[in-house]
């Protein structure tokens, strides 16, 4: 009965979905936020590795919608809806948004982690998706993975070891 589960990797400024069985993982979250949405009825997980709070500041030619909180969430919702997710069943969990280095000065870019967290919360509220668990802030990096059969989010860090939410 030992079966290696398939692992789907989500890179930085990237997003993906996994349905029915398997694990979805993103590594090395610092100030970035790992946002997950889960539909437990159909065992569908969507995960985004969000790097920046808002696409308003984007100066790139072709927008990478997975990178920004305001564009990644609608894209996740769309991809999940295509696979049969029902908006009202979705619950969100997130981790990351650390402030890796603390400085007294340095302006907005220095507190990008907390700003990413705030932005994700704002957009979840806008889409009326409840945030049922989070492990955000502090000053350390995290690797997260979600098992799509259970919807458990496990978080690993150098300083805090492993935990599940």
């Amino acid at each position: 009965m030992i079966e290696e589960q398939a692992v789907v990797k989500v890179g930085m400024a990237d997003l993906n979905v996994v349905k029915e069985s398997g694990i979805i993982r993103t590594t090395g979250l610092g100030s970035c936020v790992g946002l997950t949405l889960y539909d437990k009825n159909i065992h569908l997980v969507g995960m985004a590795h969000v790097m920046l709070p808002s696409s308003d500041i984007a100066r790139e030619g072709q927008l990478n919608i997975a990178k920004y909180a305001d564009t990644a969430l609608p894209e996740l919702l769309k991809r999940m809806a295509d696979l049969g997710a029902i908006r009202s069943r979705l619950v969100a969990k997130m981790a990351g948004g650390a402030q890796m280095f603390s400085f007294s000065s340095g302006g907005d870019n220095m507190r990008i982690g907390p700003r990413n967290v705030e932005a994700c919360k704002l957009f979840l509220q806008e889409y009326k998706i409840p945030l049922i668990a989070e492990d955000t802030g502090a000053n350390y990096g995290r690797t997260i993975e979600m098992d799509c059969t259970t919807g458990m989010l496990s978080i690993r860090s150098v300083q805090m070891g492993k935990k599940e939410i």
Partner: peptide, 20 residues
């Protein structure tokens, strides 16, 4: 003292607005 990804990503924020 942490994961390389988490640390280095911090230095990429300014580039994040420009591309990948």
């Amino acid at each position: 003292y942490d994961m390389a990804g988490a640390i280095l990503n911090y230095g990429l924020i300014q580039f994040g607005e420009m591309g990948d």
